[in-house]
Design a protein around this nucleic acid. Structure first.
Length: 117
DNA sequence: AGACTGACGGTCT
DNA sequence: GAGACCGCCAGTC
C-alpha cells in the first residue's frame, strides 16, 4: 500500500520536535509534494485540534506567523497558546522568530520514517 | 467541465 | 516590513 499524501504529511508533521516549528511549504517538500503547501494546511485543518498525537501547532506559514482567520474558529489562538507553552515567543499578531526555532530535520531520517512509518 | 476556495509561497512594489 | 499579485494543488459546488 503506497502511503497517501495525507499520511506522509502527518508523518512528517509528527517528527517535529517540541520547541521547534516548520512551515507548510517545508512539510510539503519533505513529504514529497513540493509546491503543495496548501494541501498541508488542508490536511491539518481536518485534524482534531484536541488531538495531541499530532503536533499540528508546530506548523506555521513561511512568513513566520500563525495563519489566523475566521475560518479556524479559534484553533489559531489555541495554536498560539501551545507554542507559548513550548517556550516559543508568539506576539499578538501570531508572529514568531522563525529563523530561531526552525526545525532542520535529517533528510535520511525523514526518508526512513516515510518508508517504514 | 468550469469556477471558486483555502491553516500557502515567492516576487514585486 | 507590509500589501498586492499570481502561481500552486486538491476538494467542493
Amino acid at each position: 500500500m503506497a502511503p497517501t499524501a495525507e499520511q506522509n504529511i502527518l508523518r512528517v508533521t509528527a517528527m517535529i520536535p517540541r520547541g521547534h516549528v516548520t512551515t507548510y511549504g517545508r512539510v510539503a517538500e519533505l513529504a514529497g509534494y513540493f509546491g503543495a503547501a496548501r494541501q498541508v494546511g488542508w490536511v491539518l485543518r481536518r485534524q482534531d485540534p484536541a488531538d495531541t498525537t499530532i503536533p499540528w501547532h508546530r506548523v506555521v506559514n513561511a512568513a513566520g506567523a500563525i495563519s489566523m482567520g475566521i475560518g479556524r474558529t479559534g484553533s489559531d489562538w489555541i495554536q498560539r497558546e501551545l507554542l507559548l507553552e513550548e517556550g516559543i515567543p508568539v506576539d499578538q499578531a501570531g508572529r514568531l522568530p522563525l529563523r530561531t526555532y526552525l526545525w532542520t530535520p535529517d533528510p535520511l531520517q525523514v526518508l526512513q520514517v516515510l518508508a517504514g512509518g
